[in-house]
Simulated assay, not measured.
Amino acid sequence: MKLTDVVELKSGTPQFRVTETLDPKAPVYRFYGQLELGADLSGGDSDTTCSKRVRTYDAVEALSAGDLVFSLMSGKATLVGECHKGYLLTQNFAKLVPSPMIDARYLAYLLNEHKEVRRQLALGQQGSFTMKYTVRQLADLLLPDLPSRSMQEIIGSLYFNINRVTALKRDVAEKEKLVVMGRIKEAH
């Protein structure tokens, strides 16, 4: 079964086509980027002070919490977190709208971790100067047989939970390192 049998693909808004305005009444959008994707995948928050913004009246693809996005730059997928709702989806991303046949979290797991799916994505990169995935390449992905919907939900939930735990452990280890390094400096 192809990915497009179970999802609808939507391309992000090309940044160069967004007409910026100085009108203070126009909506302001933050750009969804790799930092936001990483934060959503690990269950954390991103630093919104450094995200690029645009003020425009243009019709753009704005994200909602729970949307499934795929980065055409990194080849990673995640669900958009509550803190990133309303962000503008750029041409560097695709939004995947799953049918009732597939759980969004499970699909993120398949795209990020399933050996055969990752192999297909890697094959599409060979011989390319720019290491960017395409919406067409994504659409042509062949998926393995899907487990029951309840099993998909369990796997998807476990996947996001372990990503969160891993990120928290990494944060703790980094803070412990800072404390130890501070003590070493004090000792000198």
Rank of each mutant, 00 (worst) to 15 (best):
E113W: 06
V117L: 03
R164N: 08
A173H: 15
G124A: 01
L138F: 02
N163H: 14
S150M: 09
R118G: 00
S157P: 15
P147F: 02
Y159D: 05
L107P: 02
A173T: 13
L178I: 15
S150P: 07
R105K: 09
L138N: 01
L168E: 13
V97G: 00
R170P: 08
K169S: 11
G127F: 14
T134G: 10
F129V: 15
E176I: 12
V172R: 14
S99Y: 09
R136G: 15
K175F: 12
V172G: 00
F160H: 10
N161A: 07
E116R: 06
D140T: 13
T130K: 11
Q126D: 04
L123K: 07
E113L: 11
Q120C: 03
P100K: 14
M131E: 13
A139G: 04
K132S: 12
Y159I: 03
V165R: 07
I102L: 06
R118L: 06
D145N: 06
P144A: 09
L107T: 01
L168N: 13
R119F: 08
L110H: 02
P98L: 01
R136P: 04
F129R: 11
Y133M: 07
Q125P: 00
V97W: 12
Q137H: 11
Q126V: 14
L168W: 11
L178P: 04
L143F: 04
Q125A: 07
S150T: 08
T130Y: 09
P147G: 00
Q137L: 08
